[in-house]
């Protein structure tokens, strides 16, 4: 049976009629065309689909769109400023080449930002543990960890806030 879901995605109010079994990630990608959020494993293991729901990182493949009704959602598309300036965590991933093929990157960046919210200056060990829910199939973790450390310092230093949250 169709139902109407309404939420704020990257600062914009959206409302769509969807099937009740529609996953949040399907809603974002197929109904809103926000394909920056990826589907990797589709079994809540890889973290390619991580988005922020009311400021908390969640796996969008393991949440119904209906559960997010009324929520504030931030996806990778919502991080950069309107003039295109990258979020400090995105900039750090570029600077430190925190990616190889790039498929896991949106989820890595979203998880990293959530991690830094709780821990402004994580150690390497804390970063590795904090990113347990994200898998890089290229095994490019070394530079990802470096990027998150630099991103944390940039976010902390500049006091930058996550866009649209």
């Amino acid at each position: 049976m169709p139902c109407t879901v309404s939420m704020t995605v990257n600062g914009k109010a959206v409302s769509r009629e969807v099937e009740e079994r529609t996953l949040l990630v399907t809603f974002l990608r197929e109904h809103l065309g926000l394909t920056g959020t990826h589907v990797g494993c589709d079994t809540s293991q890889c973290g390619a689909c991580v988005v922020h729901v009311d400021g908390r990182s969640v796996k969008a493949c393991t949440m119904l769109a209906a559960q997010a009704d009324g929520a504030q959602i931030t996806t990778i598309e919502g991080l950069a400023a309107s003039d295109g300036t990258l979020h400090p965590m995105q900039a750090a991933f570029r600077e430190h080449h925190g990616l190889q093929c790039g498929f896991c990157t949106p989820g890595m960046v979203m998880s990293a930002i959530d991690l830094v919210k709780d821990n402004a200056s994580p150690t390497e060990q804390e970063i590795r543990e904090g990113l347990e829910g994200n898998i890089c199939r290229c095994t490019g973790y070394h530079n990802i960890v470096k990027a998150v450390k630099a991103g944390a310092e940039a976010m902390h230093g500049s006091g930058a806030k996550v866009a649209a949250e």
């Binding site: 973290g47 908390r56 990182s57 969640v58 796996k59 347990e132």
Partner: peptide, 9 residues
């Protein structure tokens, strides 16, 4: 329990 995202839900 689980990972960070699982604990958030």
């Amino acid at each position: 329990i689980g990972d960070r995202q699982v604990r958030n839900m």
